[in-house]
Design a binder for these strands. Structure first.
Lengths: 234, 234
DNA sequence: AAATCTAAACATGTAATACATAAAAACATG
DNA sequence: CATGTTTTTATGTATTACATGTTTAGATTT
């Protein structure tokens, strides 16, 4: 048996803590018993007794589930299953300095991919009012000579509005989380080449495409608009 | 003052528990003090003393951070900051039955958006070997008359390979999480119309586009390939 | 009888203490 | 010097006690 085999066969030792296991058991229990949002969960003491562990352990496990929004607790009333807020949970671990470089780059790409791919949702759901609002936003489009902070804010407003048009709340929240990260990756020397100053399809061009074009045209326009970012990847 | 004003002005009452606040304080502390992955965190007792709370509370907060992968602890050694695994955390709250319908639909759309938007990554990074593997996969492409489970497995293999080609691990993991959900939404009556049986661009067609086409063509091909899904949305 | 106040019961929230366990460090032994 | 043993230390688990906020029910008032 060589070293690799040895390593894999010995890897099986369970290194998880009691809390880890209880947390898992609780979730399994909730799923198997078909719990829906709003259903109430047994009391801590009961859980402790039936699992044969101390209340401390149960509380730690519940505390974790509470953090990810899977359960909510009220005094006297006990705990109930809740709709977890996926993005709220993501937010907690999205700490730029704690993330490794690969993940940061992945997330940078993630945004680019989303903005191109969402063209169909935008074209299918955009309203006259949305277009008017977009026009208002791009009317004051700053040129590159202006204050950087102002440029960023403007970028955010425009692209944020695009996400809003998709009607996809989850994606919009995700974008909101990605923003500071995107900015962080930008500044860090993570992506080799500096961003070029070439002008591609402008925000105004995008709005025009949304108003008069097709989904396919919008995908191309977005791809072109993001060229400065893509250029840093490839 | 009308009801809405009243509601917003009264909303300010702090309903968070001590653990919630300590958890937040700890993360703030880590960020402000410029902690990087690998740096070790003060001992529980020290934290308890300096924050003026019991070790119980500190432990609950740390337990939460441990769950999302932000810290890792070893006996005797103490806790260290770690690279959080974003997708591992998401997985914990991705319980179909616990999610509300809006979120489920959002996630369904999310996948479609990703697969169209990632065309550029694929075209930029695909290798000769990748194309060979794709060809092997589609060589045994099952027709619609075959076993459903087999079809799903085949779908998974093909689309999973596409994500792999992007070289974006985060996106690949995300897709892996989305799979069971996608399937769940499919079956549930959540999306009105049933999926049509029309044949659009096939997997073979996609492979052909990847080998001989452009990013723009691949976006269009993917959009067309996913038409049966899009048709249920609009 | 309806409304309002009061007290008891109860489940979660926080604290304090004790001991178990694993890992590191120091020490001892051949 | 390599190996084995003890000590130390910080986390892991359990137990107990009490605080706090809600619910329930009972008492009081009108």
């Amino acid at each position: 048996m060589d070293l690799l085999d040895l390593k894999t066969s010995l890897k099986a030792i369970d290194n998880s803590s009691l809390v880890d296991r209880v947390e898992e058991k609780l979730v399994d229990y909730l799923i198997e018993n078909n719990f829906k949002a709003g259903d109430s969960i047994p009391k801590e003491i009961e859980l402790a007794n039936s699992l044969g562990v101390s209340r401390t352990v149960i509380r730690e496990a519940l505390s974790r589930l509470r953090m990810i929004g899977l359960v909510e607790t009220k005094k006297k009333k006990g705990a109930v299953l809740a709709n977890p807020d996926l993005m709220a949970v993501l937010e907690k671990s999205l700490i730029p300095k704690a993330l490794d470089e690969d993940t940061l780059r992945d997330l940078f790409e993630f945004r680019l991919v989303l903005e191109i791919g969402m063209a169909d949702l935008i074209m299918a759901r955009v309203t006259k009012e949305d277009i008017d609002e977009l026009k208002t936003i791009v009317a004051v489009e700053p040129d590159l000579s202006q204050d950087l902070a102002f440029n960023i804010e403007h970028e955010t407003r425009f692209h944020g509005k695009l996400y809003e048009i998709t009607g996809n709340e989850t994606m919009k929240k995700f974008q909101k989380l990605l923003l500071p990260l995107f900015d962080y990756v930008h500044r860090s020397g993570l992506l080799g080449k500096p961003v070029s100053k070439n002008k591609y399809v402008s925000h105004k061009g995008i709005v025009h495409t949304i108003e008069h074009g097709s989904a396919e045209m919008l995908r191309n326009a977005m791809r072109n608009h993001l060229e400065n970012h893509f250029a840093r990847l490839f």
